[in-house]
Each structure stands twice: as structure tokens, then as C-alpha cells.
């Protein structure tokens, strides 16, 4: 199944890309990629800011550094001051970032979702384009537009802390999250090509940030109605499930009955038919046979 699946998948993607070659936005997309590449190169090559003597001075420098990074990597869609950009036809090129807070930046940039190569249905998790310091600078800059949710500190996402209740986290997860991300956190399909991503391997901090900021199609679960302790329990449950071995053997994607059915047919029936084909043979003959009676 899987090789042919990925091949088909690849073909589909290839077709989709080549179809969009002449799309009016294609040039913009290419331009963005180039700009982004230059920005990244600049960001990597430019000397990092020296530690300042006072905290406020440090903050100012950080915001200033963030502003420079933002102007190069983000402003083309989100506007120079994060006010967002809307195309003439009314579609949003990049939403306003006023008030989204540092948490949102840390999530979007820290999981590699931003910057996007081109505006699309859904940004995917990938290798982050910026290092931690740069992400902090960007977050500080965006947070300076208007206050928003902050990046949770270490203790809020420490799943080994005293009083963390994994079982309660499980109940909360199944009530609030499993409907989209599945009971094992494997993710799932939403409408018209949107999907809830797989949560395996996502940093606790980023899970927390996703809940408080509601990235993309995901709804918000703010701290007023789903408290920090509840969030920590949910993250602890997810990490527990992720780290758990599969006691029954191969996990086959922890995806439930569809993959089990495929295995039952391919391995179960397939393997047993292979045995059956051997059962009905005779062991090696000594010499070639003959017809018992010829007419």
C-alpha cells in the first residue's frame, strides 16, 4: 500500500504544482521564496546583538532586531507594522498581527509554519527558518504592537511537575481535542483539505501556545476557560501516550480499524494463502510422470 500511495500522492502534488505554474500568484510566490531566502541569509550572516547593560535596553534592542527581521521575512504579507494585507479582490494575503501576542509568533515561527512560501490553505510544520534568539526577537517585536498571549514559561509546561494528573489530562483531551486530533494525537481530516495535524513530537510549549492562540482553523482554548493546570495535564497525557510503547506489538499507526483491516487482508489472508499453496503441493518427484491410461 504505502509505496504506491506515496507515489500516487507525489503525482497528485506534482500535477497540482505544475497546474499552478501559470497561476497569477506564481510570480509572487517565487518572489516571496527568493525574498525569504535572502532574509534568512542576511539573518544568519548579520552579527548577533551584544548583551545590553540593562533589561529595558536589552528589550529595546531585541524589538529592534525583531523589527529588522520582520521587515525582511514577514512584512511582504503581514505589512511593515503587522497590520495585515488584503488583496484587491478581498482575499487576505496575510492577517493582521496586532494583538496576536508573543505566543502566536513563537508557535508559528517556532514550528516552522511561518514564514510560508506562499499563502495557502494551511501552513505545515517544518524545520524552523529562524534560531531561538531570532524567534524571541520577532515575538518581542510583534508583541510590541499590542499585548497578546505570552509565551508560557517552563514551569507551565513541565509535565513532570508535582500534581500533574495524566488521567485528568486524558479526559480533557478526549473532550476538547480528540475529535480533531484523534484519541492518539495522530491528527485527522477536516473540511476541504484542512486537517488537524499530528501532535507526535510537538514541543509542550508549542502545544500550549496553540491552545491559547488558536492557529489557523483551530479554535482558541484560553486560560480563563481551560486553566493552565488543565493545559499542563493535557500536554502530560499527550506526552505519556507518545512515550508509551505499544504493548501489543507494532502500533500500525495507532490509526484504528481501517489499518487493522488492511493488515488482516494483506498479512493475515495473504500469509495464510501462501501457506495453503504450500500445503497442497507434493514433495519433490523423483522423475517426470506419465498418463495412467491413454486413449
Amino acid at each position: 500500500m504505502s509505496p504506491s500511495t506515496s507515489r500516487r500522492n507525489g503525482r497528485w502534488l506534482g500535477r497540482a504544482l505544475s497546474r499552478r505554474r501559470r497561476h497569477p500568484m506564481a510570480a509572487v510566490a517565487v518572489l516571496l521564496v527568493v525574498l525569504f531566502a535572502c532574509g534568512s541569509a542576511y539573518a544568519t550572516l548579520s552579527p548577533s546583538s551584544a548583551p545590553a547593560s540593562t533589561t529595558t535596553a536589552a528589550q529595546t534592542t531585541q524589538i529592534e532586531e525583531g523589527r529588522q527581521l520582520f521587515a525582511i521575512g514577514c512584512a511582504s504579507c503581514h505589512g511593515l507594522n503587522g497590520e495585515g494585507q488584503v488583496r484587491e479582490d478581498g482575499t487576505v494575503l496575510g492577517p493582521s498581527l496586532v494583538g496576536v501576542g508573543a505566543a502566536s509568533v513563537d508557535f508559528q515561527v517556532g514550528t516552522g509554519r511561518m514564514p510560508m512560501a506562499a499563502p495557502g490553505a494551511q501552513a505545515e510544520r517544518k524545520q524552523p527558518a529562524y534560531n531561538e534568539e531570532q524567534i524571541a526577537a520577532l515575538a518581542a517585536y510583534v508583541d510590541s504592537f499590542a499585548p497578546g498571549p505570552d509565551i508560557p514559561d517552563e514551569s507551565m509546561v513541565n509535565v513532570d511537575a508535582e500534581g500533574v494528573d495524566v488521567a485528568r489530562g486524558g479526559v480533557l483531551f478526549r473532550t476538547n481535542c480528540a475529535q480533531c486530533h484523534s484519541a492518539t494525537g495522530q491528527g485527522g481530516a477536516l473540511t476541504y483539505g484542512q486537517h488537524a495535524p499530528n501532535l507526535t513530537g510537538v514541543e509542550p510549549k508549542h502545544i500550549y501556545e496553540a491552545m491559547i492562540t488558536g492557529p489557523q482553523a483551530m479554535p482558541v482554548f484560553n486560560d480563563e476557560l481551560l486553566g493552565p493546570e488543565e493545559k499542563r495535564d493535557i500536554i502530560a497525557y499527550l506526552k505519556n501516550v507518545e512515550d508509551q510503547p505499544d504493548p501489543g506489538g507494532l502500533g500500525i499507526g495507532r490509526a484504528g480499524p481501517v489499518s487493522e483491516g488492511l493488515w488482516a487482508w494483506l498479512v493475515g489472508i495473504g500469509g495464510l494463502i501462501a501457506f495453503a499453496a504450500w500445503v497442497v503441493t507434493r514433495s519433490a518427484a523423483a522423475k517426470s510422470g506419465s498418463w495412467r491410461s491413454s486413449s
Partner: peptide
Amino acid sequence: PSQVTAGTQPDWYVG
């Protein structure tokens, strides 16, 4: 009855 998981499916023979 108020919870559900993405990817809710029956065993293959009810599929």
C-alpha cells in the same frame, strides 16, 4: 456519548 475521536471507523467488515 459526548466524546468522539477523529478517524472513527468500524472493523473492516462493517466498513
